[in-house]
Design a protein around this nucleic acid. Structure first.
Lengths: 199, 199
DNA sequence: TTATAGTTGTCAGTGACTGACACACTAGGA
DNA sequence: TCCTAGTGTGTCAGTCACTGACAACTATAA
């Protein structure tokens, strides 16, 4: 029931998304106020005005209330990579595909920063985020692999390596951005990280 | 109590390590037999002949029964990197430092492979492993950073990026090794991954 | 109006983990 | 020899994330 997609655009799906957003936003308020671990699911449920059981009908885990949107971002990322010209080198294409999600972080300023800080200081969230990145990984592989030249026997492996390294660079850059309180420009940080890795 | 180091070599510490090893080995048997999630801590406790509560006095989490030794491997890895000649480039030094832990995996054949397979198919273990890698990361940064040339303002960031990418390559290589049933040579896989990332 | 499908609350239960407490064993000093 | 401090252990009660089952409700479709 948590994974009910239904027909897109249907009324049911619409209200479902609305409730989901309501829960997520209420949860985030509480998390930022008193911490992720310190906030109980029942507490969130009470704040939204529903039973704890029902909250779990909208989010499979407590972590998903924070990271739920990451699946969609992964889809966008894969689509953006797909759109990159075939002439671009793998690294360059990946870097450019990251432009949009990066800008989204940098622009909405305070909100994203608070979120990132919580993410970097809560081990449970870190772990869940890594799982989401693993999903991104799986989405990106089939899009990146065709761009790779060289022996096909190692193509998959090399695609995995590059995607994995790129996402690592993203993590490192976002971490540094978070530590700097959002002052350092995220795109420059990512460029430095990638350049260092390819040195 | 879980983190009691005591004085090294003392009798207490010795018996503690013995009990710990006993629990870990019994747990691993059960995990391989019936799966990680399907095995209860109480079940492990019963098999070892102690109470569930006491098991948690030796391992903070169920995952640690599988991954407990990773902290020590991280220490070894950092020490190995420290020992590499200063003339070596960062990537080369990291690659060489990984030789020993890599060989350990490749040599003991079946055991490590079964473990790696379980690790790659159990999300909870994957997540815990990533946390251990984050610890490795922290250990490696101060050892690698001094090797980096270039502006000191971005030295930390670049160190983070390279270490993170290297550990990603390790993950990718081990995954492929696992998928191949341990047939493909691990060192070659790692070399390919690193070369792809630096391309 | 009625069948149907989806949503909800309640309740009972599992399993990882924690704190508190009382008890047992062991080594060292008086 | 007795006493004491340190340490390991079982038991018990409790928290919290999460799940399955069921009955009640509601909105829509025929």
């Amino acid at each position: 029931m948590v994974n009910t997609p239904a027909r897109r655009g249907g009324l049911r799906e619409l209200t479902r998304r609305a409730v989901q957003a309501e829960i997520a936003s209420t949860a985030m308020e509480l998390f930022l106020e008193q911490g992720f671990e310190e906030t109980t699911v029942d507490q969130i449920a009470a704040a939204v005005g529903m039973s704890g059981r029902s909250v779990f009908r909208y989010f499979a885990t407590k972590e998903d209330m924070v990271l739920g949107e990451m699946r969609a971002i992964g889809d966008d990322l894969a689509a953006a990579l797909q759109r990159r010209p075939a002439s671009e080198e793998p690294w360059e294409a990946l870097r450019r595909a990251l432009d949009e999600p990066l800008a989204a972080l940098d622009s909405d300023g305070g909100k994203a920063l608070a979120r990132a800080t919580m993410l970097s200081t809560t081990p449970a969230l870190r772990a869940a985020q890594q799982q989401k990145h693993a999903q991104w990984h799986e989405l990106l592989i089939p899009v990146l692999a065709p761009r790779l030249k060289g022996p096909s026997s190692t193509r998959e492996l090399r695609a995995h390596a590059i995607v994995s390294a790129a996402l690592s660079c993203l993590d490192v850059a976002v971490d540094e951005w978070t530590r700097s309180g959002g002052t350092k420009p995220l795109d420059r940080l990512l460029d430095s990280a990638i350049q260092a890795v390819r040195s």
